[in-house]
């Protein structure tokens, strides 16, 4: 996972497999970065994620809440077809902008 701070906020390049086992560490690292940088926009980049189950939805919804509490927004980027399929089932695409 690579964190990159930019003008509008924070981009997180996620990698590997996002399941229940991996999501705890991922969310802790992202939340630490959010509290440290207070971004207006959080971009979650899924372009090199090889697998995601509904644990990834929990991850996105949780970060949405954190960002929403601080008046920020969340963007999902680079999600491949299987990941988009899980996201659409959850309706998370209505909360976060997918591009």
């Amino acid at each position: 996972m690579i964190l990159k701070q930019h003008e509008r906020g924070l981009t997180v390049l996620l990698d590997g497999e996002i399941d229940h086992h991996a999501s705890k560490t991922i969310r802790e690292e992202i939340d630490t970065a959010i509290y440290e940088t207070v971004p207006d926009e959080l971009v979650l980049d899924f372009s090199i994620v090889s697998f995601m189950d509904s644990s990834g939805i929990g991850l996105v919804l949780g970060r949405y809440k954190v960002m929403h509490e601080n008046g920020g927004s969340i963007v999902i980027e680079g999600a491949t077809q299987p990941i988009v399929k899980v996201m659409k089932l959850s309706g998370v695409d209505k909360l976060a902008r997918i591009r």
């Binding site: 969310r27 509904s54 644990s55 939805i57 949780g62 899980v86 959850s90």
Partner: peptide, 22 residues
């Protein structure tokens, strides 16, 4: 869908919905 007893663990409550749909 979205029912979970493990909210503190950020579970989305979508496990069975995914199984049913996939």
């Amino acid at each position: 869908p979205m029912y979970t007893t493990a909210e503190s663990d950020e579970r989305a409550g979508l496990g069975f919905a995914v199984m049913e749909n996939f």
